[in-house]
Design a protein around this nucleic acid. Structure first.
Length: 279
DNA sequence: TCCTCCCTGTTC
DNA sequence: GAACAGGGAGGA
């Protein structure tokens, strides 16, 4: 379940393996995984990979087509089980390989995805800008100060009766947060996930902003969280799952007060919290 | 604003 | 063999 820290880790680990190489050919093994841009596929031939980066939970590969002024973007959403790996020449597709990009040094970039929720879109820059999902994305939580993020939370929480956790998961409110980091940041901020957003004070929202930034930064330092499937583009697992305070710990004791952690469902997601520490 | 669906592997 | 994991689209 790659969220912001995992996608960031994948981008960082993939970048040195592919930037500067040219794409020789693209193979679509699962057609519905290519959600847009089929007509642009021929332009990928001999295109040079210039950048691998992340925005929200999306991983983007920017390429320069050989005889074309306009760059192209390969935009991936990994959803739950998407992953990348660079294989040697002639490596055959694996059971869950959905896309293969043959590179000019003979290596092969695989996009694998067990549950096939993930997708790739090949897009021109103006198409990316015009894509509703892209243009609606909220701010990157790590690209502003805690005070600025807290003030942003205060603005968007005003008058909202939805649970604060539901807002954290909303990519239009803040980009890149999924179930793990929503639960972990609410725990660190001492806030119940089911609190109606409008009931949070500005100081509580500042605490939440700060906790969210802390937990995302720490996780990036640990190369993300590996629950089941997640591995970076070198095949390495992350380690932040060892630091979870609440996620996946329903019924276990709170590390701070020893209360039994409780669970509920918010916005359709399993939610774990400490009934004593979070108010 | 909330619910269902999409999908497959793992766990109960 | 059912329950569960879950991001986001789409519908009520």
């Amino acid at each position: 379940m790659p969220e912001l820290p995992e996608v960031e880790t994948i981008a960082r680990s993939l970048s040195p393996q592919v930037v500067g190489k040219r794409i020789c050919s693209a193979h679509v093994l699962l057609p519905r995984c290519l959600q847009a841009g089929e007509s642009l596929l021929p332009r990928l031939e001999k295109a040079r990979i210039v950048r691998v980066f992340r925005r929200a939970k999306l991983l983007l590969i920017e390429v320069e087509p050989q005889n074309d002024a306009s760059p192209l973007l390969l935009v991936f959403h990994l959803k739950m089980t998407g992953s990348f790996f660079v294989h040697p020449a002639d490596a055959p597709p694996l059971k869950h390989t959905r896309l293969i990009f043959d590179l000019d040094d003979g290596s092969r970039l695989f996009f694998d995805d067990t549950r096939t929720f993930g997708y790739c879109r090949v897009m021109l820059p103006n198409e990316l800008d015009a894509w509703d999902f892209w243009s609606a994305l909220g701010p990157e939580p790590l690209e502003q100060s805690a005070a600025e993020l807290g003030a942003h939370f205060a603005t968007v929480c005003k008058g909202r009766r939805a649970a604060i956790k539901a807002l954290l998961l909303d990519q239009c409110i803040v980009a890149g947060v999924g179930n793990i980091y929503a639960d972990e940041s609410l725990y660190r901020a001492g806030l119940r996930p089911d609190r109606p957003a409008s009931t949070l004070t500005s100081s509580e929202l500042l605490r939440l902003a700060s906790a969210l930034q802390d937990v995302l930064q720490l996780s990036i330092q640990e190369c993300g969280s590996s629950i089941r499937d997640y591995k970076d583009a070198n095949g390495n697992a992350g380690a932040f799952q060892n630091s979870f305070a609440v996620y996946g710990r329903k019924g276990q004791s709170c590390t701070r007060c020893s209360s039994s952690l409780e669970s509920c469902r918010i916005a359709g997601r399993a939610t774990v919290y400490c009934p004593a520490c979070q108010t």
